[in-house]
């Protein structure tokens, strides 16, 4: 085969490979949505984070507004402190309420932010703190409650619990 045709084929091959890589990163992966642009960090304390992991999405009204940066144990308060990275273009009031939810019954866990009515916004210098949080719903705990309340013979409570869970 001619030398130049061969070079051309190899060039096409390499180009196609790189296009495939970029395609994977942009179309299949989260490289585009991952680029939140400038972010600011706020922290939130949770009694129980369940199965929340770093890099889990933060949603408000179902829209991804940021990602979980890190999760640590606070040895003074004996609870979990979660750092949240939020896109700079989204501002949240000081009394925002954070909860940990699950997508589907067994799906990935994510953080939901619900805006309150405060006129003052969360600080964007890293000192911002979300005061109102709700811990993750842990399936075993729910089942435990259900079983124990069943044992007490109270037939109305478990139904309520299950409704709460949903």
């Amino acid at each position: 085969m001619d030398r130049t045709t061969m070079d051309l084929w190899v060039g096409l091959f390499v180009a196609a490979g790189i296009v495939a890589l970029i395609g994977l990163a942009m179309k299949v992966g989260n490289l585009t949505s991952d680029h939140l642009g400038d972010t600011y960090t706020v922290s939130a304390h949770f009694d129980d984070i369940g199965g929340l992991k770093p890099r889990a999405p933060i949603k408000s009204a179902g829209v991804v507004v940021g990602r979980v940066d890190s999760i640590q144990f606070d040895s003074k308060r004996y609870d979990a402190v979660v750092k949240l990275k939020i896109d700079k273009s989204y501002k949240f009031p000081k009394d925002t309420f954070a909860s940990i939810n699950t997508s589907g019954l067994l799906g990935e866990q994510y953080v939901t932010l619900e805006a309150g009515g405060d006129t003052e916004m969360l600080e964007e210098d890293g000192k911002g703190k979300i005061e109102h949080t709700q811990p993750a719903l842990v399936l075993e705990k729910l089942i435990g409650q259900f079983v124990s309340s069943k044992a007490e013979g109270d037939s109305s409570t478990p139904q309520n619990t299950m409704e709460d869970a949903q």
């Binding site: 994977l24 990163a25 299949v28 992966g29 989260n30 949505s33 890099r55």
Partner: peptide
Amino acid sequence: FWSQMQTSVDFRVDIVNGV
């Protein structure tokens, strides 16, 4: 199809590790 894929496939953990 695409959006669920994008939220679950992580660039560093999945794609870079695959490479």
